[in-house]
Nucleic acid binder design. Structure first.
Lengths: 106, 106
DNA sequence: TGTCAAACTCGACGGGTGTCGAATCAAGAA
DNA sequence: TTCTTGATTCGACACCCGTCGAGTTTGACA
């Protein structure tokens, strides 16, 4: 958030990322993928951990993919997901700098 | 995101915060407030900077308030907003640790 | 009291979102 | 090829969200 307020054009792109995180199911999905720390996670493993249906999980994964937060790769019969660290870092930094800017004043 | 995947109960609360950030107008509002670094911003100043109507801005500020990301205080005829650093830091940390966990593997 | 300005609430509209079952696609095994 | 399993896409439903104009509240000032 920094010293300079966000330009509208930047806000649109960043909001897409935050919007993708704005659902409990997606947040849990991302956390389960990120918890593997470099390793990938099979979709079958994710669907087993949720009460929602397969199509719903697939939809949420697509939202995370479209937001650039995760990538997917098919190997054989299974599809594996992994996080995109730079994308998460960009969102994190935005909030961090703004929090710091305010904290520094106190 | 850390080593442990998010519990569903935690995910619900955190998702509220991210959801509030998932709109370009709200992201810009928050950035304008945060850019003041400890100082507060008058609503009148915010509405002037946007093309949206007053009621719309007021609605977005309420969403940010309900999410605990900002606080408001009335003084005289004007209402002033300021950010809640700890709330932003909590969201930032979640993304940061997950990004770090993955980056550390590489 | 009455009036004015700032901010919020209300009601409504159009479009978007989460969810599911059914159908479809992809890849391996018989 | 046909069959089976994993994953996605499709179509539909109920609900939510961003937006506005109109009306309401709050406080200052005559």
């Amino acid at each position: 958030m920094v010293a300079e307020p966000l330009a509208e054009i930047d806000a649109v792109g960043l909001a897409k990322g935050f919007k993708a995180l704005g659902d409990p199911a997606r947040l849990r999905l991302l956390s389960m993928i990120a918890a593997r720390a470099g390793d990938e996670v099979c979709v079958c493993e994710l669907t087993d951990a949720f009460t929602q249906s397969g199509p719903t999980i697939s939809h949420h994964l697509k939202v995370l993919r479209d937001a650039g937060l995760v990538t997917s790769e098919r190997r054989g019969s299974w599809v594996y997901y992994r996080v995109v660290p730079s994308a998460l870092a960009a969102l994190s930094k935005l909030l961090d700098t703004s929090a710091m800017a305010v904290a520094a004043e106190a």
